[in-house]
Structures are given as C-alpha cells and as structure tokens.
C-alpha cells in the first residue's frame, strides 16, 4: 500500500513537472522562435497526453492544474481553466471507455483541446475589437498545427511516466 502511494505521488509529481516544463519552454524558448508565425501552446497538448494515461478524474485534475498554471503563470485567459479541466476529463473518460491509448487519439484529442482553448480566445479578441476575423487563419490555425507537432514528445513522456512502478 505504502509502495503504491509512493508510486502515485512520484507519478503525479512528474506529470506536474512535465506541465511546468511545457509552460517554461513555451514562455522562454518557443515564444522567441515562432514557427509559421505562431507560438505553440503546449499546455493543452500536455494536459491531453497526461489525461490519456488516467481516468476522467485524473484528466479533470490535470486539466485544472494545467489551466491554473497557464492562466496564472502564463498569458492564458481565465476561461481556459474550466475548458482544460473539461478537456482533460473528457480525454480521460473517452480513453478509458472507447479509445486505445496511442498517438492517433492523442493527436485528435489534442486538436480538440487546442481548438477549445484557441477558438473562444479568438472570438473574444474579435468581439473586443483587438483582432480581425481573419486571425482564425493566420493565428489560430498555425498555433493549433504547430502545437500538435509537440504531441509526440509529450505523449511519449506522459506514457513513460505512467509506466512508473508497472515495469
């Protein structure tokens, strides 16, 4: 029992560190090297990848942590917190019931999470008059595509962490 608790704590610590690393890299390295003119958003992808390794409950907690980090530590807007919690819960739930845990569902669910975060942000910026409608093509689309590229390393890392204590 004690061993299992230790493994769970270690796994969660590593997942939170993974989210932190994603946030720090996004705010220090990737924002200085924007590919296709967009800065990748790693947190939604990281949340999905981690959520895939657990249940809906795991996903919701990871989403909540990821949302809080990207909102308070990054530049995301507050509504990203419930969106990421929902995306994480949905990912965890769907993967537990329907999907096999592999890269393709990670890409599809990552795409969903990215769109759930990016589209409302774009709509809000457009509504406030800070961005034109065309930003959907020249900001949201490249941001989502570039962010998806990082699914592979993030999925691999999340999977390796989930194997902790199972080998």
């Amino acid at each position: 029992m004690l061993y299992r608790n230790r493994i769970t704590i270690a796994r969660w610590t590593l997942w939170v560190l993974l989210l932190t690393a994603a946030l720090v890299l996004q705010a220090t390295v990737f924002n200085r090297l924007p590919l296709l003119g967009a800065i990748p958003q790693l947190i939604p992808v990281a949340v999905v990848c981690v959520a895939m390794m657990g249940s809906a409950e795991t996903g919701a907690v990871v989403g909540l942590i990821g949302g809080l980090m990207s909102c308070l530590g990054g530049d995301a807007l507050v509504f990203v917190i419930p969106i990421l919690a929902f995306a994480g819960a949905l990912t965890g739930g769907l993967c537990s019931i329907y999907f096999t845990r592999s890269l393709l569902p990670a890409l599809l669910l990552g795409l969903g999470a990215l769109l759930l975060c990016a589209v409302p942000t774009w709509l809000l910026q457009w509504y406030l008059g800070h961005a034109p409608l065309s930003a959907l093509w020249h900001v949201v689309a490249p941001e989502v595509l570039i962010s998806l590229v990082y699914t592979l390393p993030l999925y691999w890392l999340s999977w390796r962490i989930s194997l902790l204590g199972r080998q």
Binding site: A56, E57, A85, L90
Partner: peptide
C-alpha cells in the same frame, strides 16, 4: 458514463 460524481465535482471546482 463518462464522468463520475467526483469528476463532475472537480469540473465545478475548476469553474
């Protein structure tokens, strides 16, 4: 089927 009561609780907490 997807969300348990606890998961729904976490989502409400996130909101």
């Amino acid at each position: 089927r997807l969300f348990s009561t606890r998961t729904k609780g976490i989502l409400i907490a996130a909101l």
